[in-house]
Amino acid sequence: MPTIAPVDLGGFVVRAGFVENSAFFADGEGNIIFQRDEDGAVTVSPHKSGLLAAEISHDYKSLVTSGDDGCIYSVKADGSAALVAERPRKWIDLIACGPSGAVAFASGRTAWVRFADGREREFSHDRAVGGLAFAPKGMRLAVARYDGATLWWAASDGNPVELTWKGAHLGTCFSPDGRYLVTAMQENALHGWRLSDSQDMRMSGYPAKVKSFSWSAKGKYLATSGANAAILWPFSGKTGPMGQQPLQLGTRSDALVTGVACHPTEQVVAISYQDGMIMMCRFNDNAEVQLRRPGRGPIGTMGWDRDGSRLAFGSEAGEAGIIYLQD
């Protein structure tokens, strides 16, 4: 049976996951706790005030954070923090980590990319930036915005590619093979594009907004929140999910799914709910294992370690912990 090691936090958990071999928990007050099994916990608070976003670096060696102080920090599991970039008086609530130490961040209508050597590039848009993502290979940056998304070559001067679809586009991600771009919309839907020809893909029917998505280990499925089950869209064919029925895993009649985290090696997904419960479901037969009973609030963030033996989680009520799977 799974066992849980609880971690006490003071408030809303913005992000939970693993850096190197240490679990981390970043809360809205600006505190980051690294839970190291062999050396106990390390707490660091690099931001002067609140923490707005946190992303794991491309090499899994640090946590990149942003806050309402306009600062972006790279924080390691030993508690050391280095200032990556600063935009005084800017509200930096969107960040993305790319290859070779690149970091993208945005405020208002402007996105920036900072490279490991300290160089920066600025990308301006007509409407506010809603989401950022780097392609799995190369220095291509996707910027979600109103009425679509823009693809920039971050390290060169090539012309951007404009992908259009009416409405407000927020969080965004590339498929692991780089063939598709998917955005979560302000309405209860996802939208996607096949990048080879900009073919649109519409994924709708959600009763709530999609706030969490996760690609399966081999990129065959995109798991999403926003319904009474985890909705997994198939991306194995030439047309992505179009004309195919999604998997529905972990269905409950009394609670919406708030988070999804696909296992890094197996065809299973961790699913969190409004009431704080966490389940683990297998793709091929929908077999379920309860990992956590309901708690005080919705689980908003989950993250596996790299071998899939531990799952870190955090709730909107400040509950957090590490779930250890046992054979």
Results as ranks from 00 to 15, higher is better:
59 D>V: 06
219 G>T: 01
241 P>A: 15
257 V>E: 08
304 W>N: 05
197 D>T: 03
236 S>K: 14
218 K>L: 06
191 H>Y: 15
317 A>R: 08
33 I>E: 02
33 I>F: 10
254 D>M: 06
155 A>W: 02
224 T>K: 04
309 S>N: 06
24 F>I: 01
45 S>Q: 13
55 E>A: 13
272 S>W: 00
187 E>T: 13
284 N>V: 15
114 R>I: 08
163 L>F: 11
8 D>T: 15
132 L>K: 07
302 M>Q: 00
55 E>S: 12
138 G>E: 01
148 G>M: 07
322 I>W: 00
61 K>M: 14
203 M>D: 02
237 G>H: 06
58 H>F: 12
74 S>A: 15
242 M>V: 14
209 K>N: 11
29 E>Y: 14
178 G>P: 12
72 I>L: 09
175 S>C: 04
44 V>G: 05
206 Y>P: 01
287 A>Q: 11
33 I>Y: 01
163 L>A: 00
10 G>M: 11
182 V>C: 04
280 M>G: 09
43 T>Q: 12
65 T>P: 10
215 W>D: 06
24 F>R: 03
154 A>C: 09
153 W>Y: 12
79 G>N: 10
299 I>P: 08
226 G>F: 13
271 I>F: 03
227 A>R: 01
40 G>Q: 09
250 G>C: 08
83 L>I: 08
186 Q>K: 15
244 Q>M: 12
24 F>Q: 05
156 S>K: 10
83 L>D: 09
198 S>M: 02
305 D>G: 09
75 V>I: 14
303 G>M: 02
87 R>W: 11
42 V>F: 11
196 S>M: 07
103 V>C: 05
206 Y>I: 02
252 R>K: 13
102 A>W: 09
44 V>T: 11
38 E>T: 08
272 S>C: 08
161 V>D: 13
284 N>L: 14
216 S>E: 06
256 L>C: 07
176 P>D: 00
153 W>M: 07
312 A>W: 08
284 N>S: 10
78 D>V: 08
16 A>L: 12
93 D>H: 13
267 Q>W: 09
292 R>D: 00
185 M>G: 00
20 E>F: 06
192 G>P: 06
221 Y>M: 08
260 V>Q: 02
263 H>M: 04
154 A>Y: 03
146 Y>F: 14
102 A>L: 07
323 I>L: 01
92 I>M: 05
79 G>A: 06
45 S>T: 15
56 I>D: 12
209 K>E: 15
320 A>Y: 00
